[in-house]
Amino acid sequence: MNKETRCFVLSMAQVSCQKPLCDEWIDNPCEYTDYFVRAQEPDTRSLIPPSEARRMSRILKRAVATSITALNESGISHPDAIITGTGTGCMENSEKFLIDLCRYGENCLKPTLFMQSTHNTISSLIAIILKCHGYNNTYSHMGISFESALLDAWLQIKNGMIRNALTGAHDEVTPFMALVMERTHPEFSFISETSMSAMLSSGNDYTSACEIKDIRLLHKPDMKKLAALLNEDTDPVLMLGINGNPLNDAPYLELLGNLDYSPSTEQYKKTFGDNFSSSAMAFYKGVRILENCGDDKTGRITLINHSEDSEWSVIRLQRQPGEIVKK
């Protein structure tokens, strides 16, 4: 790997239970007490022609809205790669197809629902809109789908295979699936929906404040080994997926108990809720914190996420003093 090539976060955009396509959540977050909170839909009129938007499911509209917003802000119109993470993909269309299959049997089904039900419908739609013939991949691996996509983009940028990548994570939850998840995911606090897109770049053409220094995916790691990885560097703030639910929090607390030091910690799930793409909001919040930490400081945040204590991820973000904040 070319050690010289760095990977920066140029721009980001989010749609969630907070006000969409902006950062009002920082000073004025919406607070929720419900178990299931849907995303606040973005106004897409300036981003997607209404005739096209009408034919898109919620997740597709949100994904296109965050992608176009992040692209516009980055100044890159034509990314070298489009890489997406999604835990359950186009759930709304898949569910409708299944309901029709149950109600009407195998003879009156709609092709559009099937065509827009695969996980990679999202990445493909963005490529079709942008006419991007470059690398296009989609990861669907529980709560580390986003990190898998990010790792793919990061490795290719570091290797010089691509210069930049539009990378995102998108998950929608239907009312029925929220009822199901209440049973199948008792570790969640409140179930939410997430769309987050980020432009990553080698920084040859642009500069940005925040750099991705490392990404690790770990399957059922030994807690002591994971702690040893974090003990190597005691400086960064740790961003944890703590949500107040002991079923979710216990592995994080066990990890903290194995550290040689008491780190400062941040969390994000109280603001953004739980879904298979919620770790993308840890990334979003982490990058925003570093962008705003002051030009003269070295800022470092390590994002730690686990999905059912089976899949773990560690992402190291860093901001060096004097690096220019684009905007």
């Binding site: 991949n137 990861y139 691996h141 529980m142 580390i144 898998s148 995916l217 399957h219 899949e311």
Partner: peptide
């Protein structure tokens, strides 16, 4: 994850879906 865990103790597992 189930395929992986019934095959060996892998250090990393992920899924592509295209």
């Amino acid at each position: 994850a189930m395929i992986a865990d019934n095959t060996g103790c892998f250090g990393m597992v992920t899924t592509t879906s295209t």
